[in-house]
Design a protein around this nucleic acid. Structure first.
Length: 975
DNA sequence: CTCTCCCT
């Protein structure tokens, strides 16, 4: 009776009821884990199932069709091949408690559990629902699996499956050449795994490719391998001991080889996209060629587009080649060379008219209800803006296009817009750099418009200057660009050059190794014991002058000795994943109690600038940025940005995303910096340059709070992962009258604020913000003494990258300030530099002189003169100094210059044979020089002894005391 | 008055 009664008032939706059922049926042994994401999914299913059953009862009350049959037909579209044999054996899915409850075997002692008021028919019903749920899921998986099998077997490469396996069995090196869409990157690793190979690594030039390939391959196997497919990139890994296939970046594999040249952890190495000819992949091929005889059991598969295959095959002793056809739709090519008068416009600005004409032609020729977006390839950001402006006018007028720029200096949010959808009858017009050639793949592109131009970085070894210049693309690039039109259907490629131009293009782009500075490469080669880099058998030799320049530079920097062997410093530099310049800062920085800001600056100079270019036009942003600017130079501005951001981060309740947006900062770059500085710190510790930090004592209250917060963060992360499915937004047309964009921005930013900031969650799981803030001293202002030491450390890293202001600068306007280096005259400040907008900081201000002469030692000397340290020299339209620091000339040069020459009466000092200082007080000059020499000797001694001891961890107390004394002396003298 | 693109 009682049971009947409670059954009538039964409510499946009662949370308490649900909790109790979960307790009873879901446990650790069960297929549905209690409180798991799956249990949530189950309840969603359950509600549908209940509704369905009610419906079904009404319909089939008098029908002969069994209830169960009915469900099966309605619940899912299942393939005919499904066989109920695949069903899970029910007996194992229920917890013991549940079985007892169902069979009424509850023992007296278990009364506390109190299931008796749950009616037995409800228990049975619930059990049935679980059964259906599991069955439903299995059928779904089964359906997915058959669909995937079909897809996989329709890939062009599928025909060659056995052939590939056989070739790999028979040869140590195999080349697989296949064009876009043949499926080589996803299938080859799986074929090899299925054939019994294990420990498979597949390298990719880009991080995102590693993640998406691991995801795709994991998905194709329906995660039946579980964690058997994974990826590993810097700072991120989904690898586990069970991983059989790992996708990793070329750079990461090279670091692994540097640690253990035999890489015993791998049996098969697949090097993908070798045709792209990146510095890393060319080097990796060289390293592997050396390794093969030592590892006869190692299998290497090179994967390439069908480009220049002979080169790769020959490099590996005529390795066999398998060519696989690609799968692209046909693409019509239309050559439309730019008329003479538009090709060379007077303003030297790109003429957008030929581009606009193509857009209009598309509107004219193709009905708006036909699918297809347009992708325009241009060489650079300014070109994109010019063309964008012109097309936007037309787009606003016709309401048929949404114009989107795409390049790497755009905020990540803006880059992601190219994946959004358009309203019906509207096409996307994506105007892009070569980022869309390989790195960003946009489906749905039907039209490609190719300018035929690309900007490429080259290197001038004489001035140690980077040069960014525009060139014609290669035929290979032209084909790659064209191919972007045929991914989802037949396409059209408009080329704004003549077919004869195309024929005159180079066949391939110049490999990176032949264009860039090889400092880091040579250093790494030395550290890997690869011998003389001049005679290393690269697949294609870099210019000998590049190698010589690199060796000379490394010698000059003390990384190589006269025999071109690694010095202790060089050895350490080779292990730091940064430019030599940054590595030197880190090494010197670790000798002082100023490591923390040095770590931050080194990290900041190793990532893309967090300052978004777009925001420079926004006056609100520039005002909000003002307080972050440092008088001392750009690296210090970056330091301020990081420290301020960290303050915001550790302040619960404040929104760092909003803080960044207001200042036009890309927060992602700050996250990257946090990861980098931690890696630097750990490497310096590993090599004995820093002492292990004492474990901090945290009071119990705080520990509890941290524990609770972490739990919540994990919960948020899981929640996010469950609901992750990226929803593509529908883009809006720009309003004809006034840009509704600002309104739109506000709205979308609000929406974004409401959702979980997953980057913030991940960041807080990875780093202890409070600890980070306290350790990095983010809240504290540096004393002027610390600041001046910090500058010296930074400039010691930069040395000899120093520039002198031209003596007539005070007569020039802000943007025309001229500087000189030893090897290059007439350089200007990059407009992003603080000094560019505040050039007076670098000028000798006669009024200020009075104020400065309060230090007796410096009386009458050029302490007011400033020299400029810079991180890099970049020539675009003009040669620019990038990332500048100012340094008091006298102090800086005395402490940094390689050579100091004086005349007999000491009224002149010539530094490094090019900077001359006129001294007013010869007696004091001598004193200063001897002080400087003392400091430099101490500096060197400390460094050497630290490096020599770096293999031993046990510094004795005497050492420490001595170092501290010397460093203090040094600090006093240089402050 | 401004910078192609990756990566340890």
């Amino acid at each position: 009776m009682e049971r009947e009664g409670s059954s009538n008032h039964w409510d499946w939706n009662n949370p308490e009821t649900r909790r109790r059922l979960e307790d009873l049926f879901f446990d650790e042994r069960g297929y549905i884990k209690s409180k798991s994401e799956e249990s949530k999914e189950f309840w969603v299913f359950f509600e549908r199932f209940q509704r369905f059953q009610v419906l079904q009862k009404q319909k089939t009350r008098r029908s002969d069709v069994g209830e169960e049959e009915g469900h099966k037909k309605k619940l899912a579209d299942l393939p005919k091949e499904y066989d109920p044999r695949y069903r899970i054996n029910m007996s194992i899915i229920l917890s013991r408690e549940a079985e007892r409850a169902l069979h009424g075997h509850q023992k007296k002692g278990h009364k506390s559990r109190n299931y008796e008021d749950i009616p037995i028919d409800k228990l049975t019903e619930f059990k049935k629902a679980i059964l259906h749920y599991l069955d439903f899921n299995q059928r779904q998986s089964f359906g997915k699996l058959t669909k995937l099998r079909k897809e996989r077997s329709s890939l062009p490469i599928f025909q060659y499956k056995d052939k590939i396996v056989q070739m790999v069995r028979d040869h140590q090196v195999v080349v697989v050449a296949g064009d876009t869409g043949c499926g080589k990157s996803t299938q080859v690793p799986q074929y090899l795994l299925a054939a019994g190979f294990g420990h498979i690594a597949c390298t990719q030039p880009r991080r995102i490719a590693c993640i998406s390939l691991a995801k795709r391959v994991g998905f194709e196997s329906l995660n039946q391998y579980g964690s058997k497919v994974g990826y590993q990139i810097r700072f991120e890994s989904s690898r586990s001991p069970a991983t059989k296939i790992v996708f990793l970046t070329e750079g990461l594999l090279l670091r692994q080889i540097q640690r253990d040249s035999d890489i015993p952890q791998y049996q098969v190495l697949i090097v993908d996209e070798v045709h792209e000819r990146h510095l890393h992949s060319d080097f990796l091929l060289g390293v592997l060629r050396r390794l093969l005889p030592q590892r006869p059991d190692l299998k290497v598969i090179l994967m390439s587009a069908t480009i220049n295959i002979k080169l790769f095959s020959e490099y590996f002793d005529q390795a066999p080649v398998l060519q696989v056809p690609g799968r692209l739709f046909p693409i019509q090519v239309i050559y439309q060379p730019i008329p003479q008068e538009e090709a060379v416009s007077k303003s030297e600005k790109l003429d957008p008219r030929p581009y606009l004409r193509v857009v209009q032609a598309i509107d004219h020729k193709y009905p708006t209800d036909e699918r297809g977006d347009l992708l325009i390839f241009l060489s650079g950001v300014t070109e994109i803006s010019t063309v964008q402006e012109a097309i936007q006018v037309y787009a606003t007028h016709t309401q048929r296009w949404i114009v989107l720029p795409l390049h790497s200096t755009l905020s990540i949010a803006e880059q992601d817009k190219v994946f959004d959808l358009t309203p019906p009858g509207v096409r996307k017009c994506i105007i892009s750099t070569n980022i869309a050639e390989t790195s960003v793949t946009i489906d749905g592109v039907r039209f490609v418009l190719d300018s035929g131009k690309v900007k490429e970085m080259s290197f001038d070894p004489k001035a140690k200057m980077q040069r960014l210049q525009e060139f014609w693309i290669s035929r290979a690039s032209a084909e790659q660009r064209k191919g972007r039109a045929g991914r989802t259907g037949p396409g059209v490629c408009y080329r704004l050059y003549a077919e004869s131009d195309y024929d005159a293009f180079a066949a391939y782009p110049v490999p990176e190794i032949q264009r860039v500075a090889l400092d880091a490469l040579v250093l790494q080669m030395k550290s890997m014991g690869l011998g003389d880099p001049r005679i290393f058998p690269f697949i294609e030799q870099p210019p000998m002058s590049s190698i010589e320049t690199a060796i000379l530079y490394l010698k000059d920097q003390g990384a190589l000795d006269v025999y071109e062997e690694l010095t202790p410093i060089g050895n350490l530099l080779a292990k730091l994943p940064v430019d030599v310049v940054i590595g030197k800062m880190l090494i010197l920085g670790s000798l002082f109690s100023l490591v923390e800001p040095v770590l931050t600056i080194a990290a900041a100079l190793s990532v893309q600038s967090p300052f978004l270019r777009n925001a420079t036009n926004n006056p609100e942003c520039t005002t909000a940025r003002k307080p972050l600017e440092s008088d001392h130079g750009d690296p210090f501005t970056l330091l301020n940005v990081f420290n301020e951001w960290l303050q915001i981060k550790s302040n619960r309740g404040s929104n760092s995303r909003k803080w960044c947006r207001r200042r036009g900062l890309e927060e992602q770059r700050l996250y990257e910096m946090t990861n980098l500085r931690r890696q630097f710190k750990e490497l310096l510790k590993d090599h004995g340059m820093l002492q292990e930090s004492e474990t901090r004592t945290v009071d119990r209250y705080r520990r509890q709070r941290q524990h609770k917060e972490r739990k919540e963060l994990h919960q948020l992360k899981r929640e996010h992962e469950r609901t992750e499915k990226r929803k593509r937004k529908v883009l809006k047309l720009q309003d004809e009258e006034l840009g509704t964009s600002s309104d739109e921005d506000k709205k979308s930013s609000k929406e974004r604020n409401n959702s979980v900031d997953i980057q913030d969650v991940k960041f807080k799981l990875r780093h202890n913000v409070d600890e980070l803030r306290e350790l990095s001293g983010a809240g504290e202002e540096l004393s002027s003494r610390q600041l001046s030491l910090l500058k010296l450390i930074v400039c010691h890293g930069l040395y000899p990258q120093l520039a002198l202001p031209d003596s007539f600068n005070s007569c020039r306007k802000d943007s025309d300030q001229v500087f000189h280096t030893k090897s290059k005259q007439g350089i200007v400040l990059h407009p992003t530099s603080v000094f560019s907008s505040n050039p007076e900081l670098l000028q000798v201000d006669e009024d200020q002189e009075e104020v400065n002469v309060n230090d007796s030692k410096n009386r009458g000397l050029s302490s007011k003169h400033q020299i400029v340290g810079f991180v890099s020299l970049l020539e675009t339209n003009k040669p620019y100094l990038v990332n500048c620091v100012r340094l008091p000339a006298l102090q800086g040069l005395l402490l940094l210059a390689r050579s100091l020459d004086t005349n007999t009466d000491c009224c002149r000092i010539v530094c490094d044979g090019w900077i001359e200082m006129n001294m007013e007080d010869p007696e004091n000059t001598l004193h200063l020089i001897s002080e400087a020499v003392k400091v430099r000797l101490a500096w060197e001694k400390v460094l050497r002894s630290r490096l020599e001891k770096s293999n031993r961890r046990d510094f004795d107390e005497d050492d420490k005391r001595r170092w501290r004394r010397e460093i203090d002396g040094l600090r006093a003298a240089s402050g």
